[in-house]
Design a protein around this nucleic acid. Sequence first.
DNA 1: GCAATGATTGACAGTCACTGACACTTTCCG
DNA 2: CGGAAAGTGTCAGTGACTGTCAATCATTGC
Lengths: 192, 192
Amino acid sequence: MSRRAVQSRIARIAEELFVAKGFEETTVDEIAAAVGMSQRSFFRYFASKDEVVLDSLERLGLELAVRLEARPLDEAEWDSLRHAFEPIVERLADPAMREHDAAVQKIVNASPRLFAAYLGRLDGLQRSLSETLLERAARRPGCAADPVVLRAVVGGAFACLHAAMVDAVARPDGFGRSLDRTMAALRPAAVC
Amino acid sequence: MSRRAVQSRIARIAEELFVAKGFEETTVDEIAAAVGMSQRSFFRYFASKDEVVLDSLERLGLELAVRLEARPLDEAEWDSLRHAFEPIVERLADPAMREHDAAVQKIVNASPRLFAAYLGRLDGLQRSLSETLLERAARRPGCAADPVVLRAVVGGAFACLHAAMVDAVARPDGFGRSLDRTMAALRPAAVC
DNA sequence: GCAATGATTGACAGTCACTGACACTTTCCG
DNA sequence: CGGAAAGTGTCAGTGACTGTCAATCATTGC
């Protein structure tokens, strides 16, 4: 069994436990026992208990980065970001996925510690996307983008995403609409 | 000695240790010993090791909230937020404060765990300011503000603040300018 | 087949953040 | 003065995580 497969197995079982008894109330020992491995081995597949939950976010982030790279160079950054977010919209369009993600979101929101870790990952993703956009801007002729402003723009786009997602927990159907509304409201003037 | 005074004393001594050996490398036992109290008593003044560093943020957040409340009701949210950020600008104008805050920022940035906790606090502040603005919008006649958009706007303003602060670590003098530039770039159309 | 080799694992001990319980002292107040 | 309240130290315990080591398992070259 590949490393990836084992991780998926652990994550699936762990999430069941988290849903049943809560994140903080579930010990790593319990997860390891439920999976059928030692605690020590659990930590060989996940660096921390947090990562079991946030691992999927990592992969989603990678997908966003790829999408962003694929956008045309002359497109406005704001639109490129909106298109990069599309995998999330698509993902939440599938009811099965949406239900799963809602459960995960609930787990994350219920633990301030885990929620903070989640924000940390989001920030890391913003940094990486900002780097990408900055580099793309440099490849574009006659445009000296302000790095600070660019980072703020990326942060603004994520603020829209975050606001729409928070809302989607309550009204699970309006995510796409909310995202479009927020991103229309905050659309910056051309960065160049 | 008042509770507040003891907390300040602990924070001061702890920060020295953090600067000297790093946050993760400094144990609570060491801090308690340096202050001259038991580990148990340390936790009677701070709920966690994180809080020693992030406590000042809490007080700053309260100040922002007060400032925001004091803005005129008919002012655009974006401008109210910019004015609420003023205490930070003023704080960073004083070289002594700036140096101290830069040291704290460095401690926070050096520990992903602490940095995540920092982001968590910022998010909490955003929620509270959003609540304030939402309530203020309700008091204003003829204006049905979209809560999702409003939260995104607050998030956008904080994204500007964050981008400017990250930049200020490198160029310590341009904070006010950076903040104005980013907030000009992301200024949303009127929320109402 | 088989032996050398490298990866995977479990068992164990240890560190560190944090908590609860209890006893002791100091301070405050009637 | 006496007794409640508040602050503190000690101790024991939990839970996340890490280092170490020996055993096992799979792979590869012969």
